[in-house]
Each structure stands twice: as structure tokens, then as C-alpha cells.
Computed example of a mutant assay.
Amino acid sequence: MVLITLVIGAIAFFIAFMFTFKPASRIAALLISGIVLIGSIVLMVANYSNHFGMEKKTVTTSTEIYSASNSDTMPMMLYKKVGTSGKNNVYVYNLKSTQKTPNHTKADEYTSNKVKTTSDGTTATMQTKTTRWVWKSDFYKNLYMWSGMNNTIVKRVNTFTLPKTWVTLSTTQSAALKKEMASMTTEQQAASKTAGTQYVTQAVTAAMAKNPTMSTTEQGQIAKQAQAEYYSQVLKQAIASIK
């Protein structure tokens, strides 16, 4: 509506200035149209510069994410370095257990990312808090119709909560890690596989010693967790060697 009053005020002021000749009528017309014109301009400037008539609204969403490696035994979070502070790094993840093209966070001035590790559970999550400017009421919504200011983003904060078995590494480290793993000899691969099997067996044996009545399903869960822990240790050691 303020855009309409701005146009009307400008046209009325022009007509009053050019085509009104009686002094009293001219002054009144210029005064009224000038107030409408200047008032509209003030309201527009207040909205664009100070978000007059608006308030901040934050929406929080949370979703489960999966390893960017498409592997349950080698869960990892990848990131691409952007800048020097690390706040604007682009993080790569999957929204499905396997997918060809991974998802990634936005690389813009509004987005920042945090990564936390938890010892509770085996599920990785991404919580996104998005803050935007919205109209305080329908009055301001109608007043600033067509302004394009509604839902203007203020900030977006992504918080990744990862199980302790996950590994976070840069895309550069990931490329170096793939190269190093590809150079492993058959004997080294066999030795790593044997060590992993022993680690899982020991974990299941220890768990059954504490709970002899453990079901097959529970044993499988213990084995899967132990396998993830083993490969996490292997990955972290490998990453430390290429830093």
C-alpha cells in the first residue's frame, strides 16, 4: 500500500505544482500531497533500513543424516574449507543411507555451521535454526505489500551432532586418505581385516560375559557398533598421519 500512496503522492504533488493556480488551493494541495509523498518515503526507508513493522522469527528443523561415504562401517562428515575462520565451511552429508549426489550446506554470509560429538546413540542429526524477518501483523503486511522484505533471512545455523564413531575430515584429507588406502598391499588389507574381526569378537564376547542371555539381535547390534568403532580408530590414525 505504501508504494501506491507514494505514486499517488508524487502524481498529486506534480499536478498541484503545475496546474493549481489559486494561491490558497495551491498551498493546500502542495501541503497535502507533500505530506503523503514524504510520509510514504519515510515509511519505505524505515522498513528497508530498520525493518520497521517487522520482527525476527526463528524456525528450527532437525533431520537424520548419513555418512557422505555411503558406508555404515566408515561413517564420515566431509567439509570444504571456505575462508580462514572455519565458520563458513561447506559440510557434505547424505539424507539417505546411499545416494549418488550428496547434500551440502550453503556457502553464504548468513550460514554458519557447528559440529558436536556425542557418546549417546548411533544416529547422526543436523539441526537447522533459520531466523528471518516477518511482518508483525497483517496491517504491516498490507502496508508494505510488494516490498519483497518478508522472509528476508537474518541467519542460518546448522548444528551437526555426530556419534563418536564418526570422523570429520576435509575434502583434501579425504582425497589423500583414498590415495593412501588404495596403496595398501594385499597383506596390509588382510591384516587390517583380521584385526577388525578380532576387535568385534572381543567386544561381543565381553558383552555376553556381562549378559549371557543376550539375544542374537542384540549380539548383532554390539558387533555392528564394535565394527564402526574399529574403523573409526583406523580412520583417525590414518588422518593423523596425513595432516
Rank of each mutant, 00 (worst) to 15 (best):
I8S: 02
A10H: 04
A10D: 01
A10L: 12
I11W: 12
F14T: 10
F14E: 14
I15K: 05
T20A: 12
S25G: 10
A29P: 08
L30A: 07
I32L: 06
I35M: 09
G39M: 00
V42M: 07
V42F: 06
M44V: 14
M44Q: 14
M44C: 15
N47C: 11
Y48P: 06
N50V: 15
N50H: 15
E55K: 06
K56N: 03
V59N: 04
T60P: 06
T60E: 13
T60D: 14
I65R: 01
S69Q: 04
S69A: 12
T73V: 15
K80M: 07
K81Q: 11
T84E: 15
S85A: 06
G86T: 06
K87C: 15
N88W: 14
N89S: 08
V90S: 09
Y91E: 01
Y93I: 00
N94L: 05
S97R: 07
P102A: 09
H104N: 14
H104K: 14
E109V: 14
T111P: 02
T111G: 07
S112E: 03
K114A: 12
T117E: 13
S119P: 00
D120E: 04
G121R: 02
T122Y: 01
T125G: 09
Q127T: 08
K129W: 05
K129R: 15
R132P: 00
W133N: 08
V134R: 03
W135A: 08
K136C: 11
S137T: 03
F139M: 13
F139K: 10
F139E: 13
L143R: 03
Y144K: 08
S147R: 15
G148T: 14
N151F: 13
T152C: 12
T152R: 11
I153W: 11
L162N: 04
P163I: 04
L169T: 02
L169Y: 03
Q173M: 05
A176Q: 01
A182M: 02
M184H: 15
Q188T: 00
A190M: 08
S192D: 09
G196M: 04
Y199R: 03
V200S: 09
T201G: 04
T205G: 11
A206D: 12
M208S: 15
T213E: 15
S215I: 08
T217Q: 11
E218C: 05
E218T: 04
I222H: 12
A226H: 04
Q227A: 08
E229Q: 14
S232Q: 12
Q237E: 05
A238V: 13
A240D: 10
S241Y: 07
